[in-house]
Computed example of a mutant assay.
Amino acid sequence: MFSRRGFLIGTGGLLTMAFVGDARAFIRRKEAPLLAVPPRTAHTLYWDWPDGLDEPQLFLDGEPEVIAPEPPTWRVFLNSLDAKDYTAGEIKERLEQMSFDPSHLDQQMDGAWWELHYDRVSGPSAKAYRLLKGIDLGPDLDPSVDGPHLDFVEGGGNQFDYSLHVHPSDLLALSLLQARLIDLRLPIKVERWDS
């Protein structure tokens, strides 16, 4: 699945037509986005432009890792903040499907379930997708519409890829994203990943 969102550009706040002009000029001079600094920061949206991709990709509060790390034990997972994304009923149902025995609490989680959770919930790419999908950044756009935007992508190149990704169209889209987050008074900083 794929959706595209543009940006709300108005007369109030930071995200104005004048800002768009300034951002374009800055990008031409510096070959980097114009990223205004929010008054306070609680989260960081890192962007990285990996080799082979046409657009950068966003990651929330974590390094650009798209492959799930080794699964934790069930005990570690169930005690983590990640477990809060599921209802007790959903966790119970999954454990029953696996014929889970409480003696398995200190064994590594089911790899397929962990990978799906990482791709859709706890991975830095999925966190960026879920955060930005829930924020009023601007209007939904037809995929044929050009101009700065964010692409929200579900899945990858094969039928077994359930990962979630957000791709800004270009450096201007990164500048506009940061300005819109500031206009919404969200304590989120956009920053290039520096490995």
Rank of each mutant, 00 (worst) to 15 (best):
M1P: 11
F2P: 03
G10L: 01
T11I: 00
L14F: 05
L15R: 01
T16W: 09
T16A: 11
V20T: 14
V20D: 02
A23K: 07
F26S: 12
R28D: 11
P33F: 10
L34W: 06
P39D: 09
P39S: 12
A42I: 02
L45H: 00
L53V: 09
D54W: 02
L58N: 10
F59C: 09
D61C: 06
P64M: 05
V66E: 07
I67T: 15
P69Y: 07
P69G: 15
T73E: 09
T73K: 07
R75G: 06
V76L: 05
V76E: 12
F77Q: 01
L81K: 11
L81Q: 09
A83Q: 11
D85K: 07
T87C: 08
T87D: 08
A88H: 06
G89S: 12
L95G: 05
M98S: 11
D101K: 05
P102G: 02
H104A: 06
D106R: 06
D110S: 07
A112I: 07
A112K: 11
W114S: 02
L116Q: 13
D119A: 13
P124I: 05
S125W: 06
A128I: 01
Y129R: 05
Y129K: 07
L131I: 08
L132H: 05
I135N: 13
L137M: 11
P139N: 02
D140F: 04
L141I: 09
L141N: 07
P143V: 00
V145P: 01
V145A: 13
H149I: 00
V153D: 11
G155Y: 00
G156W: 03
G157I: 14
G157T: 14
Q159I: 07
Q159K: 12
D161H: 02
Y162R: 09
Y162L: 08
L164K: 15
L164H: 14
V166M: 09
H167A: 03
P168T: 05
S169R: 09
S169Y: 02
L171S: 05
L174R: 12
S175E: 06
L176G: 11
L177D: 12
Q178F: 09
A179H: 15
L181K: 05
I182R: 14
I182M: 13
I182E: 13
I182D: 13
L184Q: 03
L184S: 02
P187E: 05
E191I: 01
E191P: 05
W193E: 04
D194F: 09
D194C: 11
